[in-house]
Design a protein around this nucleic acid. Structure first.
Lengths: 208, 208
DNA sequence: GCTCCAATCACATCTTGATGTGATTTACAT
DNA sequence: ATGTAAATCACATCAAGATGTGATTGGAGC
C-alpha cells in the first residue's frame, strides 16, 4: 500500500550501523539513502537538498549528541520525522528527545524487523515506541500520591496557582485575608515547603 | 518463553466482544477468564478473588465509563495491568486514561493480532500504544514556541521557578538585587504577564 | 462530656515582590 | 560612527507575602 520509504541513518557504532545497513538494503519497501557517523556530517548534507525521508538517529554520538542537535535539525527540516534509536532508556532522556522533536523512540535491543515496523508506522503518520519506552511514558503519568490537604486548603491552593493574590482569594471564598494566611501557613507546614513558588511547582509535579 | 497469560475483557458492544472472544479462545498462549458488559459487574467480580490477569477495558460503557472506574479498580488491585481498548483517540482522553492507571492504549481499529501483541507486551512488563495514539503523545511534547527570552532572562526565570527569592537569585548570579528586579520587569513585559505565579505557570505550560 | 481538628479571624512585624524612572557599559549590526 | 539591545546597578514606593502568637466556633469521635 505504501510507496517507497526513504530513510537516513546517523549512527557511529560500525557494528550497529552495519547490521542496519545490510538489513535495510534487503528491504524492497525501504530505500536507505545515506548514513552518517555524526550529526555534524548529517547537517552539512541536509543543507544541500530538501529531502523526503525518515531519520534514524542515535543519541550517543561523537561530537554533538543526537538530542542536542535535534532542535537545529528540525529548524532546517521542520517536517522531518525522527526516530530515536538508542540504548538510553532513562525517562528524562526519552522526554528530552520527544520535546526536541522526535516522534518515535526505539531501544537498540529491538529486533531489526521491529525497527522496520517502526519506520513503516512513522511513514504512515503514526509513532512507534518500544514496549519498555512506552511503559516509562505511561508510568510517568501515574504516581498521584493523593493529597494530604483538606478541601478548603485545596481551594486556597487553587487560587494561588491561578495567580490570585491572597486578597482576591479571600473575597472569592468570602473569608478574611487573615484566614487565607492562616490556611496557607498550614498548607506550608503540611507540604513542608515555605514559599509560594514551591507550592505552585508542587501543584504541577504532584498534581497536588 | 511466556507462561499462560490470563485476560479479562470489559466491553459492552456485542459485536466487538464476540470478535475478541472468538479470537482469544483460539490463542493457546492466552486464557480468556471472563468478560463483562460494564465496570459495575466487573468490580463485583474482582472483589471475590485476587486474580492474576490483564484487563482489556473499553471506555464507552453503559453506566460508569472505564476511565471513571479505573481509579477504583486500581485501588482494589493496584498491580493490575490495564489496556484501554477504545475508539476514542482524543489527546485528553488518552492522558486521562494514563493518569488513571492504564499502561496501554489501543485503538479499536487495531487488528486482532495487534491486540494480542499488546497483551503479550504488557505481560512482559512493557507497554503498547497504537501508532496513532503514540503519535498524539509524542506530539504533545513538541510545541516549543521557542523562548523569546534571552539567556540571562532564562537564568532569572529558572531561579524564580525553583523557589528562590530575588535576593538568592542575585547572589547566585553575582548581580545586584536591583538587576534581578530589572530583568524580571523585562521578562514580565516580554511575556505579557504581571505576577510570579503566572511566570511559574507559564514555565510549566510552555516549557518557556 | 471532653478532646481534637478544621476553619475562622485578629494583630503585629519583617521580608519580598512589583513597578517606575533613570543611568552606564558592552557588544553587535547597519 | 551610530544606534539598538542586553545587562548591569541605583533609588523610591506601595502592595503582597511570610510568620508568629493567640482566640473562637462547630463538628467528629471516644
Amino acid at each position: 500500500m505504501s510507496a517507497q520509504i526513504n530513510i537516513v541513518i546517523v549512527e557511529d557504532d560500525p557494528v550497529v550501523l552495519d547490521g542496519l545497513v545490510s538489513f535495510f538494503t534487503m528491504q524492497k519497501s525501504i530505500q536507505l539513502l545515506e548514513t552518517f557517523g555524526s550529526v555534524e556530517q548529517f547537517i552539512l548534507w541536509i543543507n544541500k537538498l530538501d529531502a523526503d525521508f525518515i531519520l534514524l538517529l542515535d543519541i550517543q554520538l561523537p561530537g554533538r549528541s543526537g538530542i542536542e542537535a535535534l532542535p537545529e535539525i528540525k529548524s532546517i527540516l521542520p517536517a522531518l520525522e525522527v526516530i530515536i534509536l538508542t540504548t538510553f532508556e532513562e525517562t528524562d532522556v526519552i522526554f528530552k528527545a520527544l520535546s526536541a522533536g522526535a516522534c518515535s523512540y526505539i531501544s537498540k535491543r529491538s529486533s531489526l524487523p521491529k525497527i522496520k515496523d517502526a519506520v513503516e508506522v512513522v511513514a504512515q503518520g503514526g509513532s512507534y515506541m518500544s514496549p519498555a519506552i512506552a511503559r516509562k511514558i505511561a508510568d510517568y503519568y501515574k504516581p498521584k500520591p493523593k493529597s494530604q490537604l483538606t478541601e478548603r486548603q485545596l481551594e486556597i491552593v487553587s487560587g494561588i496557582v491561578n495567580g490570585k493574590s491572597y486578597k482576591m482569594i479571600a473575597s472569592d471564598l468570602f473569608i478574611s485575608l487573615d484566614t487565607v494566611r492562616s490556611h496557607i501557613k498550614n498548607i506550608y507546614k503540611a507540604l513542608e515547603i515555605n514559599s509560594k513558588a514551591e507550592l505552585i511547582r508542587k501543584s504541577y509535579d504532584d498534581e497536588l
